[in-house]
């Protein structure tokens, strides 16, 4: 009996002392935080992807509160939550936000195993950045995808995967939040976060090769050789520019007329999520049959017309 009593007293005393210690500690070391930070954090996706440019969601929340105190939320965007989340944030902070168009990550390389044969075998740690240290990589293209999946590792949303047949990453547009983590992880800046476009339809140059046409053409069947035909056909809208032997389509100016796709001698320009073309009698190009969901369906027939390599060496 005595023993039980002693045990109860001892344990009770220990509990009491600990409780008091904890109480004083929590009082003494309490950190005062702007409660709005917590509120803002609560509506954020909490993926801590860093797509906003801040270290994690709480960092972004802190930046929002600070910006709100200064009077404007301009320049702050959670790419994952997009417009709805930013509206909620603005509500909490008593601000308004302007509308922004949704974006998606696009892999600008079509150098599949078939288009771009492997010349050597890389044996080492499976990381694009490690492969970058051996120079050009396994293929003859100095700008194309390494296919080791640094972007896949960087994605927090399971939205990008390497296709085992093409060895190229493919973006799942449903899941992609345009946070830009993959674009940042890519050592060759192949991935671009682009405007999704009306009805998710867009025109993209699926190539990143800045070499001269002759070299680009030699090592990859699907490369842009910088011939400038697309630029000429787009004179009206001026959406296409060719810099350093590489064509680029400005998504804001592009009117989705698909003329560039037609004239590209190497089939480097792809129309994504567009309905299949009606075959035209005079159309020199085979009709594109890109499936509407898969953005860069590897089975899409390439226009493998023999190219005039000299045509671009002006």
């Amino acid at each position: 009996m005595n023993l039980i009593l002693l045990a109860i007293i001892a344990l009770g005393a220990i509990g009491l002392i600990s409780a008091l210690l904890l109480y004083f500690a929590s009082r003494k070391f309490a950190v005062h935080e702007d409660e709005r930070i917590g509120q803002v954090s609560a509506v954020l996706p909490q993926a801590n992807c860093g797509g906003c440019g801040f270290p994690g969601c709480s960092g972004f929340a802190g930046a929002c509160v600070k910006a709100a105190d200064k009077g404007s939320l301009e320049g702050l965007l959670c790419p994952v939550g997009g417009q709805p989340v930013m509206e909620q944030v603005a509500d909490i902070l008593g601000m308004t936000v302007e509308a922004s168009a949704p974006k998606v990550a696009v892999v600008r390389c079509n150098g599949s195993c078939e288009n771009r044969p492997r010349l050597v075998t890389f044996d080492g740690a499976q990381s694009c950045k490690v492969q970058q240290m051996i120079g050009m990589g396994e293929t003859g293209c100095s700008y194309g995808c390494y296919g080791c999946g640094d972007c896949v590792a960087a994605c927090q949303f399971d939205a990008i995967h390497i296709n085992p047949t093409t060895l190229l990453p493919e973006v799942d547009e449903e899941k992609c939040t345009a946070c830009g983590a993959c674009a940042k992880a890519c050592p060759r800046q192949i991935i671009e976060v682009r405007l999704k476009g009306p009805k998710n339809r867009r025109m993209v140059v699926l190539c990143n090769n800045k070499d001269k046409g002759a070299i680009a053409n030699k090592w990859c069947k699907a490369s842009c050789i910088g011939c400038g035909k697309c630029q000429k056909v787009c004179e009206k809208f001026e959406a296409i520019t060719v810099t350093k032997n590489l064509a680029y389509i400005d998504a804001e100016k592009c009117k989705l007329c698909r003329k560039c796709e037609e004239v590209c001698p190497k089939g480097a320009i792809h129309a994504i999520n567009m309905p299949p073309r009606k075959p035209k009698a005079e159309a020199p190009v085979a009709p594109k049959t890109d499936a509407p969901v898969a953005p860069k369906a590897p089975e899409a027939p390439k226009t493998e017309t023999p190219t005039n390599a000299n045509g671009n060496e002006k």
């Binding site: 080492g124 740690a125 990381s127 950045k129 490690v130 240290m133």
Partner: peptide
Amino acid sequence: RPLLDYIRLGKST
């Protein structure tokens, strides 16, 4: 293990 592959990557970064 490919120790140096990763150390090189880390060093250059």
